[in-house]
Amino acid sequence: MAVRNTPVDDAPIGFLRDKAKQLRRHMLAMASRLGQGYIGQGLGIADLLAALYFHELRYDPADPAWPERDRFLLSTGHYSLALWAALAEAGVLPIEELATYGADASRLDMSTLDTTPGVEVIGGSLGHGLGQGIGMALGLRLDGRPARVFVELSDGEMQEGATWEAAMAAPHFRLDRLVALIDCNGIQADGAIVLDLEPVAEKWRAFGWETAEIDGNRMDEIVNALHGARSANGRPKAIVLRTLPGKGVPTLERREKAHFVRVEADEWGALAAELEGDHV
């Protein structure tokens, strides 16, 4: 068994940035084959996924069901291309399989299903991830396993009532190995966030979560926040990540913020070239 990532404090920031860029390359390639997708959101959380899969999470790429693994739950199932990129780069899925993203009969669906290795829950019906993360954390604690549970959710997802049912429960159960990763990218299906959510961090603090608020596209801040979330102090951790949809590809960063991006066939080459520039 080859367990990835026994976290150390001297994180290789440069290495993780390179990994994030590699994830972005995979995502652009996947989206360009389809001509569309949730590429904006994926590029926005590439830095977080790189920090998780190449630094913070303990897992065995050869055995995705290893009982002692740390769990990463992608509640926003429509960010699937980001997860496929991370799982492939981490060795859980074959890199070549990324070419099947969104194709009929592919395991790499547009929205995550739990039948694909490395997927912990069915995402996509928003509001489902955090509660299931609580259940996993309770179960792991009952078994005396030190594994941690990381749940990604989005700012728009905070409009779902169940998010707050879960937010209220986790501090009650003193789940200090549970980390909520709240991707605040400012967009949702109808465009810019339709219902004011601020102050996001204050809400999580008020519910009893030890909360950090960071630039979700700065690797040093992400790593520091993940390190800070390791403390066994009886409180669940929340990290509010302010991310930029399309991060790393200036044209997409500037584009009118869209939940679902369509790119003309002749544009993809230019976008890939932008990624290779010094923007990230």
Binding site: G131, G135, A162, E165
Partner: peptide
């Protein structure tokens, strides 16, 4: 120690149960 009252929150009740099942429990 094996009993959890999640309060008046039925969506969370079922979600937490599903998570416990994923961790090998029979909720």
């Amino acid at each position: 120690e094996r009993f959890f009252n999640v309060g008046m929150a039925e969506q969370n009740l079922v979600a937490v149960s599903a998570g416990l099942a994923r961790a090998g429990k029979t909720p």
